[in-house]
Design a protein around this nucleic acid. Structure first.
Lengths: 352, 352
DNA sequence: CGACATTATGACACCGGTGTCAGACTGTAT
DNA sequence: ATACAGTCTGACACCGGTGTCATAATGTCG
C-alpha cells in the first residue's frame, strides 16, 4: 500500500496546494470517493465522508475551481459590465452605478455566486468575451444607454446564446431581458409633485431625444403628466445634458443666458440637478424660492446638498436583487419577464 | 480526411462553443498548432497563424479560461475582499470604499486582470478561499480595520503563501504588505490647519484607541502636532465613533450633552464629520463660525454638504493603482515594500 | 443455495486547453 | 551522398476535478 505511487500528486509535497488525490491517499480511498464525499453525495458511506472531510480540513484543501468549472462547464460566477458615459471623468464613477454595484455584489453573494466586475468602454469588443470564455455564466449590463452600436452587440450576445440582463429602459424592438425603474412613472411623479406645489412653468434638463431611452422615458412621463393639466413644456425650456454635474451646470447656465424663465426644473438625474442648482445659485436664483428642483436617482449626495434635493428614488437594493435573480433564472432556463420597479418620490428642501 | 473523427469536438455542432479542435479541423492542422498560433508563438508559420486567427474569428472562438487556467495554474484574476463595519447599514456601502473599488477596478483592467469582488463579514472564514481555489492569483483586502480575530486570519494567509495586500494602517507586528494613506501625516495636516485658523480648542471624534489602527494614527498625528504647540487634546473632548454618519451624530450629541466645549472638531472620517455637523447645527452651534470641522477621506459628499467640508483627501486613484501594482509584483515574486501615500488637505467652508 | 436488490467503491474517460518531445521537411555545408 | 542546423508540425501527457460504468460486498427473499 505504502509503496503505491499516487498518480497526480506526490505524498507529502507541501509546495503545492493539496489535491483530492492527497486526501485520497491519507484517507485510504480512491480520489473518486473523495470527490463524492466532499460534495456530500449520498452514495458515500457516512463514516468515510466524515473522515474525508476531516482530512480535507486538516490539509486546508479547497476545490480547484478551474478544474471543477472545466468539467461541469459552468463557473458560479456572474460578470458585471459597467458602461460609462465616455465623457465621464476617468477617476469618478457615477455614484448611482456604484450604488447598484454594491447591491448587485450583495445579491450575488447571497446566491452563492462570485462577481466579476469590469469597466467597459462602449467602443471595445466586450461582447461575449466573458461568457464564451467560461469566465462567467451570465452577464449583467449596467449603464445609461449609450446605444450607438450597442444594439448590434446585444444582437451578437443573443446570437451566441449568451445569458444576460440589462439595466435600463426596455426598448420595444430589443429582445433582451431588462430590469429597470419605471422611468416614465418616475417622471410622472415629479410632474405631479410640481403640480401640487403649483410650479408648472417647468424646465427639463437631460436628454429629450430618444438617444438615451431612460432619460427620454423620464421626460415623457413628466411631459405627458403636465399635458394632462394642459400644461406644455416648451422646447425652449429643454436643455440637453449627460449625467454629470458639469453637464447639468453648463446646460442650466445656457438656459439662463438665453433668458429662459421657469419656476421649476426637472433634471433627468441627481448629478445634473446638483449642477443645475449650482448654476442657479450662482445666477442669484434661489432654490426652492424662485425655482423648485427635482432630480432622479436619489444618490447619497442628494441628501447632502444644500438645499437638499427632492428626487425620484430608484430602489437600488431591489434592483440589484432583481438583476441577479432574473439572470439566474435565465441561466437555469426558466421563464423570465422584464421587470419594472416602482420609483418613489423623496421630497426634500429643493421643492418646498 | 473527411471521415476522420475529431477527438474532442464533433465537426459542426453549433450547440456548444467552438473549441480549438474545431479550428484545427477547419484549418487542417493539429490542435496543438492552433493553440500555438492563437498565442502568437514564433514557432508557427506566418501563413498558418493568419489562417488560424481568421477561422477563430469566424467561429467566434474564445479561449476557455477554465481549461487555460487549470493548465497554467493561474487565473489572471485578482479578488477584492471588502470588509465592512458590521454595524453598517446593509444597503449602504461606505462611499470611500466604493471609490476605492472604482479605482481598483480600473487599475486591474489596465493590467489585464479580471477582478472578483466580494463582501465579507469579518466573522466568516474567507481566508484563503479565493486563492487556494485558484479563483484568483491574489487578494486585495479592503476595510477599516476590524482587527479582532483578523490577525490570525492574516497569519493563515501568510502560512498558505497566499499573495495579498492590505489597505490600511501598517501595523509593526504584522508582516503583511500594506498600502495606505499616511494617516499620521493626515492628522497632522488637520492640526496644522486648525492652528493656522487659531482654533486650538479641539475635539476629536473617531477612535482614539488602537482598536482601529487607521483612526488611531490620524488621532496621533493630530494630537502630536498640537502638542508641539503645547496644546493638549483633553480626554473629555474625545468621543468614540465608527465610520458612519449616525455614529458621528450621536457621538457629537453626547459631547454636547456633557457640556463639553470646543471651537474645532477633527473627525476621523467624512461620514463622522457629516453626522457631527448635523448634530452641531441641531444644537444651534454654527459651523464654521462657532466650530471649525475637518474630516478625512474627501468622499464625494464632502463637497456637497453645507457648509462644504474641509477634509484630508486620500488619493484613491493612486491608492487603487498601488494596491494592484504591489500585488502583481508580489505575485511575480518581486521585491515589494509597504507604500505610504501622501494625503492632501482640501480646505472648504467648514473651516473658514 | 441461487436470484436479485442495495450499498459503497474504484477505474476510467472526459472537460479544453498548454507544454514537451519527437520527427518531418527543407536548405546548406561537407 | 551525408551530416547537420533550422523551421514547422503532430502526438501525447498533463492540469484537477466530475460523472459514468462496472464491480465487490452485503443483505433479503423464495
Amino acid at each position: 500500500m505504502a509503496d503505491n505511487v499516487t498518480v497526480q500528486s506526490v505524498e507529502k509535497n507541501m509546495k503545492g496546494k493539496a489535491t483530492s488525490f492527497d486526501i485520497a491517499h491519507y484517507a485510504g480511498v480512491s480520489q473518486s470517493t473523495v470527490s463524492r464525499a466532499l460534495r456530500n453525495s449520498p452514495l458515500v458511506n457516512e463514516e468515510t465522508r466524515r473522515r474525508v472531510h476531516e482530512i480535507a480540513k486538516k490539509l486546508n484543501y479547497k476545490v480547484d475551481k478551474n478544474a471543477s468549472n472545466l468539467r461541469t462547464q459552468q463557473s458560479s460566477t456572474l460578470a458585471l459590465l459597467l458602461f460609462e458615459d465616455p465623457t465621464e471623468d476617468e477617476s469618478q464613477i457615477n455614484p448611482f452605478f456604484l450604488s447598484m454595484l454594491g447591491s448587485i455584489t450583495r445579491a450575488c453573494a447571497k446566491e452563492g455566486y462570485d462577481l466579476l466586475v469590469s469597466f467597459q468602454s462602449t467602443s471595445s469588443d466586450w461582447h461575449a468575451d466573458y461568457e464564451d470564455s467560461h469566465r462567467a455564466d451570465g452577464l449583467i449590463l449596467l449603464g445609461y444607454g449609450d446605444y450607438i452600436d450597442y444594439q448590434s452587440k446585444l444582437q451578437t450576445l443573443l446570437d451566441n446564446h449568451t445569458k444576460f440582463v440589462c439595466w435600463g429602459a426596455s426598448v420595444d424592438d430589443r429582445p433582451d431581458l431588462t430590469v429597470s425603474c419605471d422611468n416614465y412613472g418616475g417622471g410622472a411623479l415629479a410632474a405631479k409633485h410640481l403640480i401640487e406645489m403649483v410650479r408648472t412653468d417647468c424646465a427639463f434638463i437631460g436628454d429629450a431625444s430618444d438617444h438615451s431611452p431612460e432619460f427620454f422615458a423620464r421626460f415623457k412621463g413628466f411631459r405627458d403628466t403636465l399635458k394632462q393639466k394642459a400644461i406644455e413644456v416648451s422646447d425652449r425650456k429643454i436643455a440637453n445634458a449627460i449625467s454629470t454635474e458639469d453637464s447639468g451646470y453648463h446646460a442650466t447656465r445656457s438656459l439662463i443666458a438665453n433668458n429662459v424663465t421657469f419656476n421649476a426644473l426637472f433634471a433627468a438625474s441627481d448629478l445634473i440637478a446638483i449642477g443645475a442648482i449650482k448654476a442657479l445659485q450662482e445666477a442669484g436664483i434661489r432654490v426652492p424660492h424662485d425655482v423648485h428642483v427635482v432630480g432622479f436617482d436619489n444618490i447619497a449626495a442628494a441628501g447632502y446638498v444644500s438645499p437638499s434635493l427632492t428626487t425620484v428614488q430608484q430602489n437600488t437594493t431591489l434592483a440589484g436583487q432583481m438583476l441577479v435573480d432574473n439572470l439566474l433564472r435565465l441561466i437555469r432556463g426558466e421563464q423570465v419577464a422584464d421587470t419594472l420597479l416602482p420609483p418613489k418620490l423623496i421630497i426634500r428642501q429643493s421643492s418646498r
